[in-house]
Simulated assay, not measured.
Amino acid sequence: MSQDDSSRVVWIMRKPRSLGNFSIETSYRTMQNAWPENLTRPHMHTASRFTTGILQRVAIWREVRALTFPLIHITGDIHFAAIGLHHASVILTIHDLGMLDEGGRIRRALKRLFWLTLPLRSCDHLIAVSHQTKEDIHRRSGYPLEKITVIPSVISPTFRRRDAQKNQPKPQILHIGLADNKNLTGHAEALSGLDVHLRIIGEPSPDQHSMLRSHGIDYSAASKLSEEEIQDEYAQSELLLFCSTLEGYGMPIIEAQTIGVPVITSNRSPMKETSGPGALLADPEDPESIRKAILEILECETTKATLIEKGFENAAAFSASRSAALHAELYDALRRKVQ
């Protein structure tokens, strides 16, 4: 793609909130900084409203419709912004579709209509962050597989190898996220009776606090952390426990591997593909399977060292420059198609 072609692309970003783990924004800003040197970086347009409520979302939709770029790329979450965009070529990145299964029947139907069915009618191409997400899109919508390109998300350059693990009174196990798919209950059942500290990133609900106490878990929680603070949470941990029941990609796996933290994740797609050989796999619905993996890392220094080294190797394959180049190639292919 020539410089003139790249400059005709705009990335549509949702409006970020003050603090939190905003993986979509981080991924695209990191790719923009790693953009091929011979090409002009895409423009970046951040929505002026938060994605809450009907009126705010309608305002975002109108805002995107008013843009005059020949190629509009919606980078995730605000899928509805693609509806009716026929004046430009449209790309939509889909990170996962698990939210379509949440809520009652009417709520699920509305989300499917405005986050999948209607947006996809206006899209010339889709980007999925994993093969699992690609297959899920096709299964739910029938969208042609040949029009879905898999390009992994990338992590912030803030994440770096830790110098050394800090001494802790007892091994710290890191858990990230508190949605149902993050499997906090399964993790608590697996940890019950072990002399470890569970560090939770997120704000547990009253029911989750009660559940943790019922299992006798020694735990603490932190939320709304900066990237530097999250880096420090990883660096203080013995391992990342990430046996989710559902993910679109599993970015914490790559973050942990980059820092040098052993990973335990699910033996399901896409987690097992994202982690490569740099993780122990466990059945997320079998606490005993998770517990066995935890003990293997805590009790065997050889296993721990091997996972760290293989994790470094695996994380290196998910580079920002590679994902940026794949985006640029896709834009060029779409340009050639419409000529």
Rank of each mutant, 00 (worst) to 15 (best):
S289G: 10
G84T: 07
R162N: 01
A328N: 05
R291M: 08
S2E: 09
D218Y: 06
T52Y: 11
L281G: 00
A282N: 05
K147R: 15
R161W: 11
R108W: 08
R139N: 00
L97G: 01
I308D: 00
N21A: 12
Q208W: 04
D232N: 11
G84Q: 05
L280W: 02
D180L: 07
T75N: 07
P152Q: 07
I106Q: 06
L110I: 15
L240Q: 05
M31Q: 10
R322Q: 12
A305I: 02
H187Y: 00
I137W: 01
R57P: 12
I259Y: 03
P157T: 05
I294W: 02
Y234H: 05
T68C: 14
D5V: 11
K134S: 06
H125V: 10
N183I: 12
T274W: 04
Q236S: 14
Q257N: 14
P262F: 03
A128P: 06
D101C: 12
I148E: 02
I54Q: 04
P252Y: 01
L85D: 08
S130T: 07
P171I: 04
I253D: 01
E299T: 13
P42N: 02
S226C: 10
H87E: 10
T185K: 08
Q132I: 08
R29L: 14
F80L: 13
P36K: 08
I294P: 01
K170T: 13
V10D: 04
I176P: 05
S323K: 01
A324P: 12
A293I: 06
L281A: 03
V150N: 03
R199T: 10
R62G: 01
S27Y: 06
L71G: 05
R139Y: 03
A221D: 09
V64G: 00
R112A: 08
I12W: 02
L241D: 03
P287I: 09
R14M: 13
L307E: 05
P169H: 05
E296P: 01
I230V: 15
L113G: 06
R29N: 14
E229I: 09
E296N: 06
G186N: 02
G260K: 07
L116N: 06
P284R: 04
A324H: 03
A333Y: 07
A66L: 13
L178Y: 05
V10I: 15
F22Q: 02
N314Y: 08
L191G: 06
A256S: 13
M271Q: 06
A221I: 13
G250V: 06
R322F: 07
V154Y: 00
Y249S: 03
F22I: 02
I148Q: 02
I259W: 02
D124V: 10
G142M: 15
T265S: 04
A317M: 14
T40V: 13
S266E: 09
S319M: 11
E233L: 09
I72N: 02
